[in-house]
Simulated assay, not measured.
Amino acid sequence: MTSAPRDRDTEGRARSARPRDGLGRPLPYGAPGVERQPEGVVRSPGGTLAEAQALLDEGKPFHAHEVFEDAWKSGPQEERELWRGLAQLAVGLTHAARGNARGGARLLLRGADRIAGFRDPHGIDVAGLVLWARELVARVEAGAGADARAEAPRLTR
């Protein structure tokens, strides 16, 4: 049995070329999709927050998660858990909006716990995000579902 060759990016790493919708779900090849975020982009903290907020406001938390992931991987060591937690909040919202209440709740809580010890670096409203995540978890676990655009949090004060 032979398998189909894997899609590769320009550096030769495995990366699906399938288009994706606004919540990051793969679509059939050739279907119109949402442009993917480039990987490995180094941004300032303010640039990261602005780009991620714009994506969240558009109902694209999966794509915002990719922006946070770049900051997590390229930022200073002392901030990596902050950016990782923000990425988890975004992907938690993604899962909740896809209808995966259990996975979404787990990631939202994990992200909230991860950022809770930070004291509003770069103007990030940590307390507000932790509250937002916990309230969203309660609604999602109660069966309310989540709308990615309507539930988008404000990252800064």
Rank of each mutant, 00 (worst) to 15 (best):
residue 102 R to N: 07
residue 128 G to M: 09
residue 38 P to A: 15
residue 48 T to P: 12
residue 127 A to I: 02
residue 28 P to H: 07
residue 156 T to H: 05
residue 60 K to Y: 03
residue 61 P to R: 02
residue 65 H to A: 14
residue 131 L to V: 14
residue 30 G to Y: 05
residue 94 T to C: 06
residue 69 E to C: 03
residue 96 A to I: 07
residue 116 A to S: 13
residue 81 E to C: 02
residue 7 D to V: 09
residue 38 P to L: 11
residue 149 R to I: 00
residue 86 L to C: 07
residue 146 A to K: 14
residue 145 G to N: 11
residue 47 G to W: 04
residue 57 D to E: 14
residue 56 L to C: 10
residue 48 T to W: 09
residue 98 R to D: 05
residue 133 A to C: 13
residue 140 V to M: 09
residue 70 D to T: 08
residue 10 T to C: 01
residue 102 R to F: 07
residue 125 D to W: 11
residue 128 G to K: 09
residue 38 P to H: 09
residue 17 A to C: 01
residue 102 R to W: 08
residue 61 P to S: 04
residue 87 A to G: 15
residue 54 A to M: 03
residue 64 A to Q: 02
residue 105 A to W: 08
residue 28 P to L: 11
residue 27 L to P: 07
residue 121 P to K: 06
residue 76 P to E: 11
residue 9 D to H: 06
residue 83 W to P: 08
residue 54 A to G: 12
residue 71 A to H: 09
residue 81 E to N: 13
residue 40 G to V: 13
residue 7 D to P: 06
residue 82 L to M: 08
residue 22 G to D: 10
residue 2 T to K: 11
residue 155 L to C: 11
residue 148 A to P: 14
residue 93 L to N: 08
residue 146 A to L: 12
residue 70 D to I: 06
residue 116 A to Q: 04
residue 81 E to K: 14
residue 52 A to Y: 06
residue 14 A to L: 05
residue 52 A to K: 11
residue 97 A to F: 01
residue 112 A to Q: 05
residue 112 A to H: 10
residue 118 F to L: 02
residue 14 A to V: 15
residue 103 G to M: 00
residue 29 Y to A: 15
residue 15 R to C: 06
residue 52 A to L: 12
residue 112 A to W: 04
residue 97 A to N: 10
residue 29 Y to P: 13
residue 123 G to K: 08
residue 23 L to M: 01
residue 153 P to T: 12
residue 82 L to G: 09
residue 5 P to K: 10
residue 141 E to Q: 15
residue 40 G to A: 13
residue 87 A to Y: 00
residue 61 P to L: 01
residue 99 G to K: 04
residue 145 G to L: 05
residue 16 S to Y: 03
residue 129 L to F: 14
residue 146 A to T: 14
residue 104 G to F: 03
residue 122 H to M: 06
residue 115 I to V: 15
residue 70 D to L: 05
residue 69 E to I: 06
residue 147 D to A: 07
residue 7 D to W: 11
residue 123 G to Y: 03
residue 111 G to M: 00
residue 55 L to F: 06
residue 44 S to V: 12
residue 150 A to R: 15
residue 114 R to P: 01
residue 80 R to C: 02
residue 61 P to K: 01
residue 103 G to A: 02
residue 45 P to T: 13
residue 79 E to Y: 14
residue 136 L to M: 08
residue 18 R to A: 13
residue 141 E to V: 12
residue 152 A to P: 09
residue 96 A to S: 15
residue 135 E to Y: 07
residue 134 R to C: 06
residue 4 A to C: 02
residue 111 G to I: 06
residue 59 G to T: 04
residue 95 H to P: 01
residue 30 G to Q: 09
residue 148 A to I: 11
residue 85 G to T: 00
residue 124 I to T: 15
residue 154 R to W: 02
residue 110 R to Q: 15
residue 29 Y to T: 10
residue 86 L to W: 07
residue 40 G to L: 14
residue 16 S to E: 03
residue 130 V to Q: 13
residue 98 R to S: 09
residue 2 T to I: 08
residue 11 E to G: 05
residue 80 R to F: 00
residue 149 R to C: 01
residue 96 A to K: 10
residue 105 A to E: 09
residue 11 E to Q: 12
residue 21 D to C: 03
residue 66 E to Q: 10
residue 85 G to Q: 01
residue 50 A to E: 14
residue 119 R to M: 00
residue 139 R to C: 03
residue 95 H to L: 15
